[in-house]
């Protein structure tokens, strides 16, 4: 690919969790204003990668530069300032259970802006309209289904107009219609507002439809990189297995273990 202005630069990132190496020497550059998809088998560390990017976790070695700022060397105050330009959709929504849907979305506005009550109301309703839940604004998170909760969380993450959006599995648990709407919403936000989006997803087809670049993570490394077309056409066994959903191949379906025979004491 042509040399573009890189927005995020991950270099030599290594991360261990009690002895277990989750990532080993990851290098990534992400250009500004693109939709990046990160795919990989369950448990390969995609959520962990997002947490490292947003400095919720500290890497064992290596660095993450976002817009030229090294995320892991910031003081707490600077980190909070950097995060104001970031939105993150958590894998399970992570809505505030004590606040209604409306207040959940309004939360960041109330904390960070001095907008009038009317402005807050309009902004929140606009966000909820975009995810199709304007009518659910008075419900509590416990009254929402999993898919609805994730859409509210999406509205909440977008409310401050971040420059960088991290989506952890935005499509899981959505019906086909909602999924289509969300896919277009993410794409449209990207085109209109010029934000950079990183999508972690298992939904290969949907994600590939809007992604500019796809990364495949497996076994603690970047196993593949390219445009969606390149991915689908790829002859690499790693990528082929994942993209086409073949059960066995180089990417193990099983979590590391002793051999089956040993475990069953045969």
């Amino acid at each position: 690919m042509a040399q573009e202005e890189s927005f995020i630069e991950i270099s030599h990132l290594k991360f261990c969790r009690e002895e277990r190496v989750i990532f080993d020497d990851i290098n990534l550059t992400i250009p500004k204003g693109k939709v990046i998809a990160i795919m990989g088998p369950s448990g390969s560390g995609k959520t962990t990668l997002l947490q490292l990017l947003s400095a919720q976790l500290r890497p064992t070695a290596g660095s993450v530069l976002i817009d030229g700022i090294s995320m892991h060397d910031l003081s707490r105050k600077e980190l909070y300032r950097a995060r104001r330009n970031m939105g993150m959709l958590f894998q399970n929504g992570a809505l505030f259970t004590s606040l209604s849907v409306f207040e959940n979305v309004a939360f960041a506005l109330r904390e960070h802006t001095k907008l009038s009550e009317e402005m807050i109301r309009d902004t929140v309703l606009m966000q909820l309209e975009a995810v199709g839940l304007r009518g659910a604004r008075n419900l509590m998170p416990s009254q929402l289904s999993g898919g609805m909760a994730r859409r509210v969380a999406l509205a909440r993450a977008l409310v401050l107009n971040p420059q960088l959006m991290l989506y952890d599995e935005p499509f899981t648990g959505q019906d086909p219609i909602t999924m289509g709407v969300l896919v277009h919403l993410i794409k449209r936000l990207n085109d209109i507002l010029g934000l950079t989006s990183i999508i972690v997803s298992h939904d290969v087809i949907e994600t590939a439809a809007i992604a500019d670049v796809v990364y495949i993570v497996a076994n603690g490394r970047i196993a593949g990189r390219g445009t969606p077309e390149q991915m689908f056409a790829s002859e690499s066994p790693w990528i082929k297995q994942f993209v086409h959903g073949l059960p066995d191949g180089i990417i193990p379906f099983h979590y590391p273990a002793a051999t089956y025979q040993e475990d069953l004491e045969l």
């Binding site: 947003s54 919720q56 707490r76 909070y80 300032r81 995060r83 104001r84 970031m86 939105g87 993150m88 958590f90 399970n92 992570a94 809505l95 505030f96 259970t97 939360f107 960041a108 904390e111 960070h112 969380a153 909440r156 401050l160």
Partner: peptide, 13 residues
């Protein structure tokens, strides 16, 4: 339930 993590991600201490 990651409510605290999500609050941190919204830059609220």
């Amino acid at each position: 339930t990651e409510q605290i993590a999500s609050m941190e991600m919204m830059a609220v201490d």
